[in-house]
């Protein structure tokens, strides 16, 4: 039960971090392997503010999101946009380049060790419910994750911006024809995705850890979420993240020998038999 709870919490973290990647891929057909770097950025902002300047943990979160969103906008406007429509290989190489730069930059400023995180007392306790130990922080993660997932779903299905986004994901050319400013939709989405990744990165320090290798360590996880969830599909990403989080945590707990292996296997099999993702729309072509 405790393990399941941990799995859900870690799944929601993965969701927060990956959802931006999924939308970027669905919307602009851009393979951004550097997405994890934005999560890492959020993590470091959080740690620095908390440990060096004594800013309360909860207050660091919005700041981390804003910093990462700004970084996202700057990079999108200056570099990413040049490669829209470029072959996926170019995008992959470009974003691996960004990953390398982010790793060495993080290493330069913060060293290669895991960053310590001191949670506020109110989040570090444990409850005993129905015979299971439930960490307060896990509960907090789950609440935040579900609220944000719900919020995102509302944003996408219930607002005008969401309608533009869905139209643009479905068919950018037609969306442009309908007078939707696809470029602007994309900047906003990119910023939002970066901000969510930063939030996930900051919240995840306690569970996923934070060191300069973060963007590479979890790259496969983010890709799996996209592969299984279907690119551009928020609900799919959520379900895929939860399955992945639960399998990962349970796998490491119960079958430590082959846990990670099974996860990769699931990704490969999914890609072979349902290239558009388990929950993806049938490809139009």
């Amino acid at each position: 039960m405790t393990v399941l709870f941990d799995g859900i919490a870690s799944g929601l973290l993965l969701f927060l971090i990956s959802v931006g990647l999924s939308v970027t891929l669905g919307l602009m057909n851009f393979v951004n392997l550097a997405h994890g770097a934005f999560a890492m950025l959020g993590g470091y902002v959080c740690v620095v503010l908390l440990n060096r300047y004594g800013v309360p943990f909860l207050a660091t979160l919005p700041i981390a999101m804003i910093v990462s969103a700004l970084a996202g906008v700057v990079l999108e406007r200056t570099l990413y946009r040049r490669l829209y429509g470029a072959p996926h290989l170019d995008q992959v190489l470009f974003s691996i380049g960004l990953v390398f730069m982010s790793i060495s930059t993080a290493n330069y400023f913060f060293g290669d060790h895991q960053q310590p995180l001191h949670l506020p007392p109110m989040l570090s306790g444990q409850f005993h419910v129905a015979g299971a130990d439930i960490g307060a922080y896990r509960l907090f993660l789950i609440v935040v994750g579900l609220v944000l997932a719900g919020g995102l779903q509302w944003l996408v299905t219930g607002t005008k911006f969401g309608a533009s986004l869905r139209a643009a994901v479905d068919n950018p050319r037609i969306a442009r024809g309908l007078g939707i400013d696809v470029d602007r939709v994309f900047v906003v989405t990119f910023a939002l995705g970066s901000a969510l990744a930063a939030l996930g990165g900051a919240l995840g320090i306690e569970m996923l850890g934070l060191d300069p290798e973060f963007p590479i360590t979890y790259i496969v996880y983010f890709l799996i979420v996209v592969a299984v969830g279907g690119s551009g599909n928020i609900k799919g990403s959520l379900i895929a993240s939860l399955i992945l989080g639960i399998c990962d945590v349970e796998g490491k707990y119960y079958v430590p020998q082959i846990g990670a292996f099974v996860i990769y296997l699931v990704m490969v099999v999914t890609l072979i038999f349902r290239p558009q993702g388990l929950f993806g729309r049938m490809a139009a072509k």
Binding site: L83, F94, G97, L98, V99, F100, M101, S104
Partner: peptide
């Protein structure tokens, strides 16, 4: 430094 320059080089080559 190496990894940093490597990343930069990669971006420059692609662009």
């Amino acid at each position: 430094y190496w990894q940093f320059w490597l990343g930069l080089l990669l971006i420059v080559v692609v662009l």
